[in-house]
Write a protein that binds this DNA or RNA. Structure first.
Length: 231
DNA sequence: CTTCCGATCTTCT
DNA sequence: GAAGATCGGAAGC
């Protein structure tokens, strides 16, 4: 009765996909529960599998750090849709980042997937991440993760609970991390009123977790210090 | 190791 | 016009 395969049609528990109900819970439950799960990305060249080691929770319209804070826009529309879908956004003019929509429908909350360990398909990732000196750096950061897994805006809105075995994105059950192995802290790069919450979750002592970077407002471009004298 | 800063585009003021 | 859920290179310690 304790055979993990008995309830899943002969598949080991770890190979089962996370069902939509997994994502229908409050974001602060879903986020740490994603650690140790396997993100499966079926690229045109083959599958890449990533063991998630670092995530951040974004709690909808009440969260000053969230893209949903100022209500629905063209960019964040997917966050206001059903859970279990990918919200991919383009940032800093260069990069993409991947979130999973979760919580009850309409809450516009989501989990930013910040880092992971490539456990399959690293040979497909390396050419996309030439600056990575070691495989632990392939997906060590949210934009690096998206780059390594060939994730861009064309995947925005993708249903990660789709039953199709060839779906572009899905999440396998994997080996969830015991809460004693989870660390929490402030979210990377989030400033203002959203900075106080310890809504970043990572696996303790994992080399693929990204370095913490505190929020730093950019100096305005044309702010020149006026010389003390005119010549 | 750390700090600084440019690249480049979307969104909001 | 300014800031932003970032990154990589350069320079300093």
């Amino acid at each position: 009765m304790n055979d993990p395969r008995s309830a899943s049609g002969g598949r080991p528990e770890a190979d089962r996909r996370l069902p939509r109900v997994f994502f229908e819970r409050p974001v602060l439950e879903v986020a740490p529960d994603l650690l140790g799960r396997i993100l499966v990305r079926n690229t045109p060249l083959g599958p890449v599998e990533l063991r998630l080691t670092e995530v951040e929770a974004y709690a909808g319209e009440q969260d000053p750090g969230s893209h949903a804070y100022r209500g629905r826009t063209g960019r964040n529309a997917v966050m206001f849709g059903p859970p279990g879908h990918a919200y991919v956004y383009f940032t800093y003019g260069m990069w993409h980042c991947l979130n999973l929509v979760c919580g009850p429908p309409g809450q516009a909350s989501g989990v930013l997937l910040r880092a992971g360990e490539v456990v399959r398909g690293a040979e497909l990732c390396r050419p996309r991440r030439p600056s990575a000196r070691r495989d632990t750096e392939l997906a060590r950061g949210p934009a690096r993760l998206a780059t390594a897994l060939d994730i861009d805006g064309s995947l925005n809105g993708t249903d990660v609970c789709d039953g199709d075995p060839g779906a572009a994105l899905s999440i396998r059950h994997g080996a969830p991390v015991d809460e004693r192995g989870v660390r929490t802290g402030p979210r990377t790069g989030v400033g203002g009123d959203g900075a106080e919450h310890p809504w970043r979750f990572w696996i303790a002592s994992d080399p693929t977790v990204s370095p913490y970077r505190p929020h730093r407002p950019r100096r305005s471009k044309d702010r020149l210090d006026v010389p003390a004298s005119g010549s």
